[in-house]
Write a protein that binds this DNA or RNA. Structure first.
Length: 273
DNA sequence: AGTACGCCCTGGCCGC
DNA sequence: TGCGGCCAGGGCGTAC
């Protein structure tokens, strides 16, 4: 499930491969993937013939900055993949390939999404933030301890708060569990009751875990791949996620798993208070 | 305002 | 071998 580190890994790959290239054609075989205010024809017409000036990321979304005033936005959902297909490494389309960006000369980017929870849309540059409606970017310099304090002044439990894209962008189920373990904070704690010392640790853990996962090329528990089709490695270093019943790396207590508003939540009942 | 839940969707897994 | 049932979950809408 692509979260910030996986989206960042894909962004880096796209930057190396298709930045500066001109989009010859966009093919959308599953119109349901196009959401928000745009239609399939909208996306195709506004992207065709444009050059990709840059590739950026906001939260879990990949942004193709076009040389017009448009930005082509991909959100990968649960199982979204962006694969680079070129003559030396032709990746063929399958029934889960819903969108193709063709650059000519046998080079294309394929968007695959098995569960179809992803989406694509195109938006004017000036209305990007308004469309995204996302909160703080956790690896930006301006994501300070002070800003985290403001974000956590709420009675929402800390785990769902971390996962709320309108508050902090890019953290999902895996990394919220990993971050809270690293910070020694129980996922069910109301955010506003966290002490200054705990917030400081949480702030550090957010950067530390996300950067560690980026260095691993992301986390592949099932479907995530980078643009070359390769798995990430962070799944080998999970502290708590999907380790129910296994011993905590710090204290050997079995990792506990509970449901929290329909999402599985893993934590060490002894280390996380 | 917070919380819970159903929905979208497919594939993997379990039990029979 | 196969099939029904259940589960996983990001984000959104709805109900309480």
């Amino acid at each position: 499930m692509p979260e910030l580190p996986e989206a960042e890994t894909i962004r880096k790959g796209l930057n190396k491969t298709v930045k500066g290239k001109r989009i010859k054609e966009v093919t959308i075989s599953l119109p349901n993937m196009v959401r928000r205010f745009t239609s399939k024809q909208d996306v195709v017409n506004r992207a065709r013939g444009k050059t990709i000036a840059n590739i950026k990321r906001r939260g879990k979304s990949i942004l193709f900055i076009l040389d017009s005033s448009d930005i082509l936005v991909f959100r990968l959902g649960m199982t979204g993949q962006m694969l680079w297909s070129h003559p030396q490494s032709p990746v063929s389309k399958d029934k889960h390939t819903h969108i193709t960006i063709d650059f000519g000369g046998g080079e294309r980017i394929l968007f695959r999404d098995i569960r179809q929870f992803g989406e694509v849309y195109i938006t004017r540059r000036e209305s990007l933030e308004e469309t995204l409606k996302m909160g703080a970017e956790p690896l930006n310099k301006n994501f300070t301890l002070k800003s985290l304090k403001q974000i956590t002044s709420s009675s929402v439990k800390i785990k769902p708060l971390l996962m709320d894209q309108k508050r902090i962008a890019g953290i999902g189920n895996i990394y919220s569990d990993e971050i809270l373990f690293e910070a020694g904070i129980h996922p069910f704690r109301p955010a506003y009751l966290l002490k200054d010392k705990e917030l400081k640790k949480l702030h550090w853990a957010i950067g530390s875990i996300l950067n560690e996962a980026i260095a691993c090329g992301g986390d592949t528990i099932s479907d995530y791949r980078n643009i070359l089709g390769e798995s990430g490695r962070y799944q080998n270093f999970h502290r708590v996620y999907q380790r129910e019943g296994e011993p905590c790396h710090k204290c050997n207590t079995p990792i506990k798993r509970l449901k929290l508003s329909g999402r599985s939540c893993h934590f060490c009942p002894r280390c996380q208070k």
